[in-house]
Nucleic acid binder design. Structure first.
Lengths: 244, 244
DNA sequence: CCAAAAGTGTTGACAATACACCCATGA
DNA sequence: TCATGGGTGTATTGTCAACACTTTTGG
C-alpha cells in the first residue's frame, strides 16, 4: 500500500512506536564547546552518558516536549526557556537504535549561555557539561546526534546571528568572537570580526552602562546585547580549515 | 519524568503513535516548479490533494520507507531510486494534525528530473504534478510541508550542487540556469552564471557527444553531466528579491 | 540578413584580508 | 612602563554584478 497518509488503517495492526525527543544542549565554557549529558542509571547502557530527553506526551508536540525537557534538565524556569534557541535537528529512526523497542527520536539542538551549573531539578541529578572534544562512547546513537548537531551549529553561525544565543544578556565583542572561534576551531582577525558584526544591522545593539573588563587586564570592552536580526547577510564565512 | 531516553517504561502505558513519512517530490517542468500530489479517496479530506506517503514499517527506518514510497509513487524501479536525491526535511508532530489518531510524520524532500508522467504503480492512480504556484488547500498540514520544502530547496541551491538533481543525465548550462531561475523566481545573468558553475570544481563535467539545440533556434549548447561535488564554495547567492 | 541562444571579455563596485597602529587598564 | 586586550585606520586583493561583444544556428 501507499497512498496519502494513514487510511483504512487499524492502529492495533501496527507495532506501536514510541516517540521521544533527544536534546543536544550546547554551551561555550572556557573556550571549549560543551554539551549537557546525563548518566544512565539503568540498562541498556547503564553507566554510559546520554543526551537528556524523554517521551513525547500524548497531547504534546515534539517541540513542546523538547522545551519541557530543556526546562527540567537545565533547572531553568518555564519562563526563561522560551527565550532560548531551540531548533529541530532531524529524526533518528533506525529500527535497532534502542534494543528494547521501536523508538523514533526527534533530536533538537539548544544553545545556552554558560549557566552556573546544570543543577538538574527532578531526576536529572547526574547531569554534567562535557567538553565535546574527546567524548567517550555515548549511549544509543547519541554520538551521531552530537556530531550532527555540531555540524549544524557550525554551519548556522555562518549565515545567522545565532552566536548571540551562547552569550549572556550583555556581552563584549571579544566574547562573541570567542564563540565563533570555539565552535569553528579557528582564530579570527579581531578588527575584521568587529567590523563585520557592527556592519550587520540588527546583529548586536550597544548596551547601556559602563564597559567591562573581560580578562582582568586590558582596556574595558563595550557591552552589547543581541539584536533582533536572525539572518546574516552577507555570510560570515569561516576560513578554509576544518573544525576541531 | 525526564532522564535519558526511555527507561522504566511500559509500552502499553503510552498511547500508541503512528509514524509515517510524507514526500514532497519536486520537478521543474516548463519553467515552473511542480510537486507530486495524490488525490485522497477517503475521509478525512476526501477529494483533497495530499503528499504521497505512508506508514513506516516495523523493521524499517524512515529513510527506507521514504525510498520505498518514492519508488511506488513515481513508478521508478528500486534500482533507479537510489540515484535520486532524497533528504529528510523535518518532523511534524502537532497532536491534531490528523483528526483520527496521533500521527507523527517525518517529511522528506526529493528532487527529480522532469519524468514522462507519474504513471503510479499500485494505488497511486490519482497522482499528478501540480504547479507550486497557486496550490489549493491540501490535506492535513501538507501546505506547510510543501512551503517548508520549497524554502529548504531554495536555500540548498545556494550552497550545494543540488540543482543537477533536477536535470536529466546530460544537460546544458541553460537548463541548469533555468532550474535556479525557476526555484528562486529570479533572472540570473547568463555569463556570470556560466563562469560561476564552471569555476566550481566537480559541479559539472563536460559530456561527450555533440552539442544540442535547446529552443530550436540559436547556437547549439554544449552538454554536461553532474559532477561529484556536493558543496558549493563559495556559495551561489540569489539576488535580493524574494521567491515567487 | 535577422532573431535567438550560446559563449567571451572587460570594467567598476564592493567586501574581505592582512597588518600597522593607538587606547585604556592592571600589575 | 610593560603586557594585555579593546578599538581604529588603511592598503591590497579578490569576487561578483553589469554589460558590451562575438559566435553559431534556424528561418
Amino acid at each position: 500500500m501507499s497512498a496519502a497518509a494513514p487510511e483504512g488503517y487499524d492502529p492495533s495492526a501496527f507495532e506501536p512506536f514510541a516517540v521521544t525527543v533527544d536534546l543536544a544542549v550546547f554551551t561555550v565554557r572556557d573556550t571549549r564547546l560543551h554539551v549537557l549529558l546525563v548518566e544512565r542509571g539503568e540498562d541498556p547502557y547503564r553507566g554510559h552518558w546520554a543526551l537528556p530527553g524523554g517521551f513525547v506526551l500524548p497531547r504534546e508536540s515534539a517541540g513542546a516536549a523538547a522545551r519541557r525537557e530543556l526546562a527540567e534538565e537545565t533547572g531553568l524556569t518555564e519562563e526563561t526557556v522560551p527565550g532560548l534557541h531551540l531548533e529541530q535537528l532531524r529524526t533518528y529512526s533506525d529500527p535497532d537504535r534502542d534494543p528494547r523497542m521501536r523508538v523514533v527520536s526527534v533530536a533538537y539542538a539548544a544553545l545556552v549561555p554558560d549557566l552556573p551549573e546544570p543543577r538538574g531539578g527532578g531526576d536529572a541529578a547526574g547531569a554534567r557539561w562535557w567538553d565535546t572534544g574527546g567524548l567517550g562512547a555515548l549511549a544509543f546513537d547519541h554520538d551521531r546526534i552530537v556530531g550532527d548537531a555540531r555540524d549544524r551549529i557550525g554551519a548556522k553561525l555562518e549565515y545567522t546571528c545565532l552566536a548571540t544565543s551562547f552569550c549572556p544578556p550583555a556581552f563584549t565583542l571579544g566574547e562573541l568572537q570567542q564563540v565563533y572561534e570555539t565552535v569553528w576551531g579557528v582564530e579570527l582577525d579581531r578588527p575584521n570580526f568587529r567590523r563585520k558584526v557592527l556592519a550587520t544591522p540588527g546583529f548586536v545593539r550597544a548596551a547601556e552602562g559602563a564597559p567591562r573588563r573581560t580578562g582582568g587586564r586590558g582596556k574595558p570592552a563595550a557591552l552589547y546585547t543581541a539584536g533582533d536580526a536572525t539572518a546574516l547577510h552577507p555570510a560570515l564565512l569561516r576560513p578554509e580549515g576544518r573544525n576541531t
